[in-house]
């Protein structure tokens, strides 16, 4: 089936590395549709990585996780967000981010940081688990970076979802997250997603924009 030259480690490493790379692709985007496509790509790669882990670890419940990741985050969430973007008529909007290069370099810094943090701590763990945890932590941090540097509410939602992708990667690598926990995480994310969706429409209705910077003026501490 697979060529013999591809050993197990290489494929695992390739897949989890690709999820990390797709996080950077996500950070690179400035257009909303680009962000959504990159997010769908990340989720699909993630589901492949999870399915591969399920095969390697002989853990059938991980297949469920993979399917949830693929259907929910690979197809459903991007489609709904795409619809929101179109309904709000902001699909031509170019996001004004800090600076793409600065953000990307910050992302590299975060990746190095998480590798430096995870490697000494998980010294005793299995090599693949260690590498998986390091990648997962950096994907979580990159999701946070995305939420910090973006001003548009839709891309902040995507940043949040990308963080969750990192969590799933960590959970599958660590061999032992029970299915119940995974399903409940998936559903709480889904609920959060709906809350976000309603939130976006409400902001839009009230303030005529979904640029969250404009909300600062309405905070109590504003001058």
């Amino acid at each position: 089936m697979l060529p013999a030259s591809l050993d197990l480690l290489d494929v695992t490493y390739f897949l989890s590395g690709s999820v990390l790379v797709s996080s950077f692709i996500l950070l690179y985007q400035t257009r909303l549709f680009g962000i959504l496509n990159a997010f769908a790509l990340q989720s699909i790669i993630l589901s492949l990585a999870v399915a591969w882990q399920a095969m390697v670890q002989q853990a059938p419940h991980l297949y469920v996780t993979a399917v949830i990741a693929f259907l929910m985050k690979g197809i459903f969430v991007p489609l709904v967000l795409r619809r929101i973007v179109r309904v709000l008529n902001i699909h031509r909007a170019v996001e004004t981010v800090v600076s793409i290069n600065l953000t990307l370099l910050g992302g590299i810094g975060l990746t190095i940081l998480s590798i430096m943090v995870v490697f000494p701590i998980a010294r005793a763990a299995d090599v693949l688990v260690r590498e998986d945890l390091a990648f997962a932590l950096s994907i979580i941090l990159l999701g946070m970076l995305m939420m910090i540097t973006r001003r548009n509410a839709v891309s902040q939602v995507v940043g949040f979802m990308a963080m969750e992708n990192g969590l799933v990667l960590a959970a599958t690598g660590a061999r032992g997250m029970p299915l119940v926990v995974e399903v409940s995480v998936a559903f709480s994310i889904l609920i959060a997603f709906f809350v976000f969706g309603i939130f976006i429409f409400r902001i839009r209705e009230r303030f005529d924009t979904i640029d969250v910077d404009d909300l600062s003026a309405h905070r109590g501490d504003a001058r």
Binding site: L9, Y13, G17, L20, V21, F24, Y28, I100, L104, L105, G107, I108, T111, I112, I115, F119, V127, L128, R130, E131, A134
Partner: peptide
């Protein structure tokens, strides 16, 4: 983007080396 890809490649290589 190319610079970041290069850096990222190096980091990933470093990680796989220390495996």
């Amino acid at each position: 983007g190319a610079l970041v890809l290069g850096l990222l490649g190096m980091i990933l290589l470093f990680v796989s080396r220390s495996l």
